[in-house]
């Protein structure tokens, strides 16, 4: 099959050992640097604050993935129930993979582990919200089985 994974295998790349674990304070510089690399915006205060609010909290999941012992990706999710008429559901609102470590399954493993944590908490649905032109993340989440849901995001200019 002419897949990306096969192309990688043909290049002689071996599959790394992937480990998923809760993020620690020492992982935040990686998250800040990766986000800056992926988005072009440096937001150290934002990510430090997120770690304070989401790291190791009940119903909140800030996880990192290591490839052969090197932190290479992260995900943040939580259980929310704030949309109009929505029962509690899992939300994934941050995901990043180092560009050199894409296509080896890091994001899929992070997604699976987060969804399993939601399931263990009795949650039966997971949601996310993306920019309409964020094709990279949209394609990833769709490949994991996510589809358009019954909610729609609306906004209005206030200036």
């Amino acid at each position: 099959m002419n897949s990306i994974d096969d192309e990688r295998a043909a290049d002689g790349a071996t599959e790394p050992t992937i480990t998923i674990r809760p993020a620690g304070q020492g992982d935040i510089p990686f998250v800040i640097a990766l986000d800056e690399r992926n988005t072009g915006l440096a937001k150290p205060d934002y990510w430090t604050d997120l770690f304070t609010r989401y790291g190791g909290r009940r119903g909140r999941y800030f996880l990192v993935a290591e490839a052969d012992g090197v932190v290479s990706a992260f995900i943040i999710g939580e259980i929310r129930a704030w949309e109009f008429g929505s029962p509690p559901c899992g939300w994934i609102f941050a995901l990043g993979v180092h560009p050199d470590q894409r296509l080896i399954g890091l994001a899929s493993r992070l997604f699976d582990v987060t969804c399993e944590a939601f399931r263990q908490a009795g949650i039966t649905k997971v949601r996310t919200m993306l920019a309409v032109d964020d094709n990279l993340n949209m394609s990833f989440f769709r490949s994991q089985g996510m589809r358009g849901g019954p909610f729609i995001q609306l906004e209005k200019r206030l200036d």
């Binding site: 309409v132 032109d133 094709n135 394609s139 769709r142 490949s143 089985g145 589809r147 019954p150």
Partner: peptide
Amino acid sequence: ATLRSVTVDTLLKSTSWPVPQHL
């Protein structure tokens, strides 16, 4: 955006996924 985000691989995989209730 929807059509750009669905690869051939994803569409083929989705043939075995359950249909969401609202759809």
